[in-house]
Simulated assay, not measured.
Amino acid sequence: MTTTQDSPTAAGSGASASDAFKASKERRGDAAVAPERVDAVVSAILKGVHDTIREHQVSYPEFQAAKAWLMEVGETGEWPLFMDVFVEHVIEEVAAEQQQGTKGSIEGPYYLPGQAKLGSACTLPCRDDEKGDPLVFEGQVRALDGTPLGGAEVDIWHADADGYYSGFAPHLPEGNLRGVVITDGDGRFTISTVQPAPYQIPTDGPTGKLIEAAGWHPWRPAHLHVMVRAEGYRTVTTQLYFAGGEWLDSDVAEATKPELILDPVDDGTGTRRSSYDFNLEAL
């Protein structure tokens, strides 16, 4: 049983997410942005804030409380958590309007690059006594015209049966339930792992205080994170959920989509099996 001492703190999770984000220039989006674009977007954001203040007659004490909260978010390093939970799903929604192929979803704050590369039929790295129902996740990576994409990378990561991610919970070994699976010549993969649990985003920091003050819940439904890459094709980043799962209809991150729900079937041995194919758009 995971103890309170083992549980990830908001500050610890924020620091890990911030470090991972800063380590990748590609993910940071360091390309120059035209001044006209900065003016248009930032002016619209500020107008939205100003309009909200006027509409809801925000008082000085409320303004000062908001200022203190924003300062705390920065001091604790929780910006990756806050942005990925409450903002990223809309960014992904806008991006999807111009994309074809497999539906995307948010990346979330728990991605860690540089994981172990594994063969097309593999077991994700895990502890000898890893808890959870055995799960086999298999499928094929193809181009939009159906051409199999051999050698594609299926970068997969997920929480354990207690809802914790390696790299963010101190009791988990590095790389636990993470890996980059290389598809075979027919673009196929078969991954053995355990079914993840729903998880509660860290609530001991300012993001948790906001959720409590607003009367929201902090839960995400169980899911697999998958980032599928192939040379010459647009990378698909998505999350796959489980039919009938708790919080599926009230995800705090608002990231679920009907097209992304798996329905695993017991194969008679106690192992649940599910198949999902990925279709990538050429660049």
Rank of each mutant, 00 (worst) to 15 (best):
Y165E: 13
L81E: 07
K117T: 11
T193A: 09
Y199L: 15
H158R: 11
D84I: 03
E107S: 12
G179Q: 09
A95G: 00
P170I: 06
R178T: 03
V181Q: 08
E130F: 01
D129Y: 03
Y111D: 12
E138R: 15
P196Q: 09
P148N: 13
S166K: 06
L124K: 09
L177H: 11
G77E: 04
V73S: 05
P196F: 07
Y111W: 12
E88R: 11
T76I: 09
P198T: 09
A197K: 02
F189V: 11
I106F: 01
S105E: 04
D129P: 04
R142G: 00
V87Y: 08
C122D: 04
G167K: 02
H158M: 14
A96Y: 00
L149A: 06
G74L: 11
H171L: 11
P170M: 08
L135C: 06
G108N: 07
G119L: 07
V136A: 10
E174Y: 05
E130W: 02
D160A: 01
D162P: 00
E75H: 06
A161L: 05
D145V: 09
D155F: 03
G77C: 05
T193M: 02
H89F: 10
F137V: 10
H89P: 00
A96W: 03
V136D: 01
F82A: 15
G187W: 05
V136Q: 06
V94H: 04
D84S: 13
D145K: 08
H89G: 03
D162R: 10
N176H: 08
E92A: 13
F168N: 07
P134L: 08
A116M: 15
C122K: 01
V180D: 14
A121P: 00
L149H: 04
E88H: 03
N176C: 14
S192I: 06
L118P: 05
Q100R: 14
L172N: 13
I182M: 13
L172Y: 03
Y111V: 09
G101A: 08
P173I: 03
D133H: 09
Q98L: 14
Q140T: 14
T102L: 04
V154T: 11
G167V: 02
A169Y: 00
A116P: 00
K131L: 14
D133F: 03
A121W: 00
A159N: 07
D186S: 14
P80L: 08
T76G: 03
A116Q: 15
P125S: 10
G104A: 13
P173T: 04
Q99A: 13
L81W: 01
Y164P: 02
D128N: 09
I182L: 15
E130I: 05
G167P: 03
P80H: 07
E153Q: 11
P109M: 12
E78D: 09
V180S: 13
D184L: 07
T190A: 14
L124W: 01
I191H: 04
L81V: 02
L112R: 12
G114E: 07
I91Q: 14
G151F: 02
I191A: 11
T102D: 02
E174N: 13
F137W: 14
V90Q: 14
K117A: 08
T190I: 10
K103V: 12
G146K: 05
E78M: 10
L112S: 08
S166V: 02
Q98R: 15
R142F: 01
H158S: 10
G104Q: 14
V180M: 12
E75Y: 05
